[in-house]
Amino acid sequence: MPLTEAGIYAAALRLIDEDGVEALTMRKLATALDANPMSLYHHVPNKEAVLRGVTRMVGARFRTVTLEDAPWPERLRLLATDFRTLAHRHPELMAYSFSHQPDFIQHDDPFWTALTAIVAAAGAPPSEVPEIAALIVAVVIGVLAAELNGSLHQWANLKPPGPETDGEDEPSDAAPGSPGAAAGTAGPDPDHMFRLVLDTLITGLESRLTAGPDGQDAGRR
């Protein structure tokens, strides 16, 4: 079959899902497509262009349930959860995009379109919709990046300093089969932590939108 950009991106995504971004080369991609490596350059100039194309393809495929009649917090939770599902479906690509492609979300992406509609439905002034949406994206992506690379799990297992923790054994020192050992290996529930992030975002946005220009609650003035 003749080479196409769509076919190249689809093959690249399969290789990335299997072996990661760093392992992807134009030669490996050509082999997967049963093509001459030089023929790829008629469609994409380099690996970076391939990665951008793959990211755009995955972003365009993003789908979420539309609940236009539901309260905006419910819509935001669903959208963010579906985005997290996408990140876990292609963790290698998404982790790379989060850290190396600041423009991987475009104005016409389904995710951005849905998010700005939700922020507007929440009552944000039109002039503030892009800023608020951008901040939500920054928080969600930051959490997902930390979740994908393992940082979130590690941080959540750090004990706060204080006399109540001084001298306690680390989870790895607990006797096998003991409650301490089980808690140390299980760690925090990532689903619970993501819900906590969304609850915090929603509470903060609700507070911001009910505040007056001077930052005070409009209902108390």
Rank of each mutant, 00 (worst) to 15 (best):
1 M>Q: 12
3 L>Y: 12
5 E>F: 03
9 Y>W: 12
9 Y>V: 03
9 Y>F: 15
10 A>T: 15
12 A>C: 14
15 L>N: 04
16 I>S: 00
17 D>L: 11
26 M>P: 08
27 R>L: 13
28 K>W: 07
31 T>S: 07
36 N>S: 12
37 P>M: 08
38 M>C: 01
44 V>A: 00
44 V>R: 14
49 A>V: 01
51 L>Y: 07
52 R>E: 10
56 R>D: 15
59 G>T: 06
60 A>M: 10
63 R>Y: 10
67 L>T: 13
67 L>K: 09
68 E>F: 04
69 D>L: 06
71 P>V: 05
77 R>Q: 13
80 A>V: 00
81 T>S: 12
82 D>F: 02
90 H>A: 13
90 H>G: 13
91 P>T: 06
92 E>I: 06
95 A>V: 02
96 Y>E: 04
102 P>H: 07
103 D>R: 12
105 I>F: 15
108 D>Y: 10
108 D>L: 13
109 D>T: 14
109 D>W: 07
109 D>M: 07
112 W>T: 12
112 W>Y: 12
112 W>I: 10
112 W>P: 00
116 T>V: 11
116 T>S: 09
117 A>Y: 06
117 A>M: 10
118 I>P: 05
119 V>I: 15
119 V>T: 10
123 G>K: 05
123 G>H: 07
128 E>W: 07
128 E>C: 07
131 E>A: 13
132 I>D: 02
135 L>H: 04
137 V>R: 13
141 I>F: 10
143 V>Q: 04
149 N>F: 01
149 N>E: 08
154 Q>Y: 00
158 L>F: 01
160 P>A: 12
160 P>D: 06
162 G>A: 05
162 G>M: 03
163 P>R: 09
164 E>V: 11
164 E>M: 08
166 D>C: 03
175 A>H: 04
175 A>Q: 10
176 P>Y: 05
181 A>L: 06
182 A>H: 09
185 T>F: 00
188 P>S: 13
188 P>F: 03
190 P>R: 06
190 P>N: 03
191 D>Y: 01
192 H>E: 14
197 V>L: 15
197 V>H: 08
197 V>G: 02
200 T>P: 06
205 L>R: 05
205 L>N: 04
206 E>F: 00
212 G>R: 14
216 Q>V: 11
217 D>F: 09
219 G>R: 15
